[in-house]
Design a protein around this nucleic acid. Structure first.
Lengths: 150, 150
DNA sequence: TTACATGCAAAGCATTTGCAGATAA
DNA sequence: TTATCTGCAAATGCTTTGCATGTAA
């Protein structure tokens, strides 16, 4: 039995994903399987729609952008991946389901995970009519040479 | 003498802003003064380009969208306002220069400030070649009725 | 068989840009 | 006077949509 995804296991991440797709009610179509494989078979990573499109092409296959966007949205809805909002002009998704935060190197567009245990966070109490959905922490860094520029 | 903006003073926020514009080297043109007034004369708030456009119109004036976008970017560059990245499809800016985090009610697009002192944050040490630019903390909330929906 | 999924091309939308005319210093 | 700014309209780039075709169950 597949337990809740508290630990990331690269060896089974793909098959776990397929099981979760099946359970969620969306069909494990060819395109969804290809995308799940690319997303989950290479360890923890961050992906954009364009990345995925290119990686599919590298394998001499083709999935349309429309399908890639739809699939990313569906995978997000069923909790398979998580959207990281770091940059206004590009959606980036994260295949790491463990609780974690992000380090973002602004000049390079590079994202690195920080395990939650390295961050100590106490937020104020939440009103009864609302529920906590997520806490995003983005530590924004710049390279030193860019400091001089600004 | 205008000290660094560690405290928000609604009474002088506008004139402080004008002084900082002058110091920064960009011209305090008519449009920039109007926008600075709207941004800083109504207490702490969050603003989008569209908001500003509408508020200018309400005063029976007109500033083009291009100018509003340019101005928001310039004000951000000189540190007058800060961009909050909460939503992929809309840029939102914050006129609060004090260190603080955000509570974001996703279904309503509503943003509320949380003073930094209410959050306890320890981040890992930063490599020498990088400098900390900012730490964004976004506490994402949902209304309970939307929980049922998902 | 049929409800759901895919993919193309077109549309949508926030934001940016080119450039001619306007303006601050 | 002249470097800078403004604003229009057109361009851009990411994302979504409409719809005809294809596919999983």
């Amino acid at each position: 039995m597949v337990s809740s995804t508290t630990a990331y296991d690269p060896m089974s991440a793909y098959s776990t994903a397929i099981k979760r797709i099946e359970k969620s009610g969306i069909r494990p179509t060819k395109q969804r399987r290809i995308l799940a494989k690319i997303i989950f078979d290479k360890g923890k990573r961050h992906i954009s729609a364009e990345n995925l499109f290119d990686e599919v092409k590298k394998e001499d296959r083709k999935i349309s952008m429309a399908t890639i966007y739809n699939t990313l949205k569906q995978f997000t809805n069923i909790g398979l991946i998580r959207e990281i909002v770091v940059d206004q002009n590009k959606s980036i998704y994260c295949n790491n389901n463990q609780s974690h935060y992000h380090l973002y190197i602004e000049d390079e567009g590079k994202i690195v995970d920080i395990p939650t245990k390295n961050i100590d966070l106490n937020i104020p109490s939440i009103p009864a009519c609302l529920q906590l959905h997520n806490i995003d922490v983005i530590v924004r860094l710049r390279t030193l040479k860019d400091k001089a520029k600004s």
